[in-house]
Amino acid sequence: MGWKAAEKLIRHWKVLRGDNVMIIRGKDKGETGIIKRVIRSQNRIIVEGKNLVKKHIKQGPGHEGGIFTVEAPLHASNVQVLDPVTGKPCKVGVKYLEDGTKVRVSRGIGASGSIIPRPEILKLRTTPRPTVAGPKDTPMDLVLEKTYDPKSGKGMPDL
């Protein structure tokens, strides 16, 4: 990606994986769906079951070839989040509540101004956490072990 393309990346994303959106431009205009994947490096999103295209895949050692129907990415500007109260597409704004929590709210003409909840799917991890052998904290007996002698200025001999 060149520096010009990187300059135009969306810095503050308003749509999240799991959001209910309406497609406002393209061949699936007016249809609604749930965001399956967000590709931030390309400003694109994939909506479940929408923008379907035929893809020719060559046969390989681990898979069979053929013509498959797959979901193609849409540009992020071609979708709008649905207002949870009215069910119409709206813009998304950010608001801070009295207790200091940051929430998304619906904005625009005909929007209710209600809070758009974070999708539950975001609480699930897509990639598993790496497993580390053993505990992460240092045991107390190793912490209290004396390894330096201040009188001689040398390290203690290994036993």
Rank of each mutant, 00 (worst) to 15 (best):
L124E: 15
P61I: 13
K95T: 10
K151E: 15
D83M: 01
I45L: 10
T126V: 08
E64L: 07
T32C: 12
E64G: 14
L142A: 02
L74D: 05
M140D: 11
V94D: 09
I67Q: 09
G26C: 05
G49Q: 00
K14L: 11
S112Q: 04
T138H: 04
D141P: 00
T126N: 14
P150W: 03
P130Q: 10
G30F: 05
K36G: 03
G26E: 00
G93N: 06
T101R: 11
K55N: 09
P139I: 02
K14V: 08
P117G: 05
K50H: 12
H75T: 13
K36L: 10
G26V: 01
G66M: 13
A76F: 10
A76M: 10
I46F: 06
W13Y: 05
M140G: 04
S112Y: 03
G155I: 14
Q80Y: 08
I57D: 02
H63Y: 04
R44Y: 02
G65Q: 03
K95R: 14
G60V: 12
E48H: 14
T127M: 10
I46R: 01
S112N: 02
D83C: 11
E145Q: 12
F68C: 12
R125F: 04
K123E: 15
L124V: 07
N78D: 15
P89S: 02
V53I: 15
M22L: 09
G113R: 06
P150A: 03
G66S: 14
R118N: 11
L124R: 09
I116Q: 00
G62L: 11
I39K: 10
K27S: 06
A72C: 06
T32M: 03
P135D: 10
K4E: 15
R129T: 13
D28H: 03
I116K: 06
T147G: 08
H56W: 12
L159K: 13
W13H: 00
H12W: 06
L9M: 02
W3G: 02
Q80W: 01
L16T: 00
G110K: 00
T138F: 13
E120S: 13
L52G: 07
E145S: 04
Q42E: 07
V38L: 14
V21G: 01
R44G: 07
R25G: 05
V15Y: 01
G153D: 01
E145V: 01
I115V: 14
T101E: 15
T131W: 08
D158A: 10
K55Y: 07
K123S: 15
G60I: 02
L159H: 07
M140C: 03
R25C: 12
N20S: 15
V92Q: 05
A6V: 12
P157G: 11
E31C: 13
K146I: 13
P128D: 01
P61S: 12
V47S: 08
N51W: 03
S112L: 00
T69W: 07
K91S: 14
K102E: 15
D83F: 01
R107F: 05
H56L: 14
